[in-house]
């Protein structure tokens, strides 16, 4: 299973990398949406899930989601926004753009695991065992 973590904060990239790695994913890191699209294009494997910050330079999370959704090569990539944007209207916008899930920062490792389980990307035993 491959995850791509897209966040302009290096600390947040490392936190999410540690969490998804402990859940059995291989993680690729990207600093913004454009960087992520380049890395997905160059990869020799598909990505199962993208964890996407909203506010980023170059290409923000919403633009990234729209770009991925308009590219049939990425139809099977699950998209989860991971953002400090916590207004209900923002959650609606992200879902309407094509995000499958939305996790509001700050979060616990358990919260990431539970969202991935909801998305059918995680063996339930990994969730109950904790991360």
């Amino acid at each position: 299973m491959h995850a791509i973590v897209i966040d302009d904060s290096s600390a947040m990239r490392m936190i999410l990398k540690r969490i998804v790695t402990s859940l059995g994913f291989e993680a690729t890191l990207a600093e913004h949406g454009r960087d992520a699209l380049d890395k997905m294009d160059a990869a020799d494997h598909r990505f199962d899930v993208a964890l996407i910050d909203w506010i980023m330079p170059e290409m923000d999370g919403l633009e990234f989601i729209q770009a991925v959704r308009s590219d049939p090569r990425y139809d099977d990539v699950t998209l989860m926004m991971v953002s400090t944007e916590s207004d209900q209207s923002k959650v609606v916008r992200a879902l309407a753009a094509g995000a499958h899930e939305y996790l509001i920062k700050p979060f616990t490792p358990d919260a990431v695991a539970e969202k991935l389980e909801l998305l059918g990307l995680l063996d339930p035993e990994r969730v109950t065992a904790g991360v």
């Binding site: 992200a94 879902l95 995000a99 899930e101 616990t108 919260a111 969202k115 389980e117």
Partner: peptide, 8 residues
């Protein structure tokens, strides 16, 4: 609400 609640 982050704990397992689907965004929808």
């Amino acid at each position: 609400v982050n704990r397992g609640l689907p965004a929808r």
